[in-house]
Computed example of a mutant assay.
Amino acid sequence: MATTTEKEQYQKNIQLYQPKRAVWRNGAKAFLIGGFICTLGQWLNNLYLTYLPFTEKEAMGPTLATLILLAALATGLGLYDKLGQFAGAGSLVPVTGFSNAMTSAALEHKSEGLVFGIGANMFKLTGAVIAFGVLSAYIVGLTRLLVKMLIQS
């Protein structure tokens, strides 16, 4: 059995051969690309508010739908994967990352047909996120209702 000093020496030796992680550079790339995606979303929102008869609340739906559509198209063309390799989590955190996950799962199984391929496997990666979101919304809504009822009584 190896002693503690042998384990420590092994860890020191193995560190020489492990690649150095560029944490600051990767963080900066994720910040910039994520910020760009959010800036694009804000620009689209301002565009809809300026040229269409939407309130701020109403403009969020078309803004999100446009971002989801753009991410799905970029995924289909193979561009979003390159962006994800460059930006890391910066491209995954916004709603575009969710769209990319759904679209890439659908594209992977398109050869199996529309129903059993795309329809059955589209939510393979994102199903847990949707389930958690629905459950969380239910719990928050129920809690809000109960608090409101307690305050009124």
Rank of each mutant, 00 (worst) to 15 (best):
K110V: 10
L69R: 14
S99C: 11
T50V: 00
Q85C: 01
C38M: 04
Q18W: 06
K29E: 02
S99G: 11
P94G: 02
S111V: 02
I14T: 15
G117V: 10
A137E: 04
L107R: 05
A87F: 02
Q152I: 14
G27P: 03
L32Y: 02
T103E: 04
M149H: 09
G97W: 01
M122V: 15
L114R: 05
L40F: 11
I14M: 15
L125R: 04
G133D: 00
Q42D: 03
V129E: 08
G76E: 04
G117E: 06
V147P: 02
Y80W: 11
L16E: 14
K124P: 00
Q15W: 00
G76S: 04
Y51F: 09
L32K: 01
L49Q: 04
K57H: 00
Y51K: 07
G34Y: 03
L70Q: 13
K12T: 14
V23F: 07
I33M: 08
K148L: 13
A106C: 09
Q42T: 07
A128W: 02
A105V: 01
Y17D: 11
L142V: 10
S136C: 12
L77E: 12
K7V: 15
M102P: 04
V134A: 15
L67V: 06
M60W: 01
L114H: 02
F116M: 13
L145P: 03
N45F: 02
P19E: 10
L70F: 15
T50S: 07
M149Q: 12
G133S: 04
T126W: 01
Q15P: 00
G41N: 07
V129S: 14
W24G: 11
F98L: 06
Q18R: 15
N45P: 00
P62H: 02
I130L: 10
T75I: 06
A71M: 12
P19C: 07
I68F: 13
G113I: 08
T143I: 10
W24R: 09
L125M: 01
T4G: 07
H109C: 03
A137R: 09
G34N: 00
F86M: 05
L79Q: 12
N121R: 15
I118P: 08
I14R: 15
Y10V: 13
T63M: 05
M149V: 13
W43G: 05
L77C: 11
T50N: 03
G141C: 06
V134C: 12
L47Q: 05
G90D: 12
I139P: 06
D81P: 01
A2F: 06
G117M: 06
W43M: 10
K20W: 08
M60L: 06
A137H: 06
Y80H: 09
F132Q: 13
Y80A: 05
W43L: 10
F36V: 12
A105E: 09
K148D: 13
K82P: 01
Q11D: 14
L150T: 13
T126I: 07
K124H: 13
D81Y: 05
E58M: 07
T55A: 00
Q18T: 12
K12M: 15
V134I: 15
L47S: 10
F86I: 08
Q9D: 09
W24A: 14
L92M: 07
I151A: 12
T75D: 08
G41K: 07
E108N: 10
A28L: 15
N45S: 02
V23Q: 05
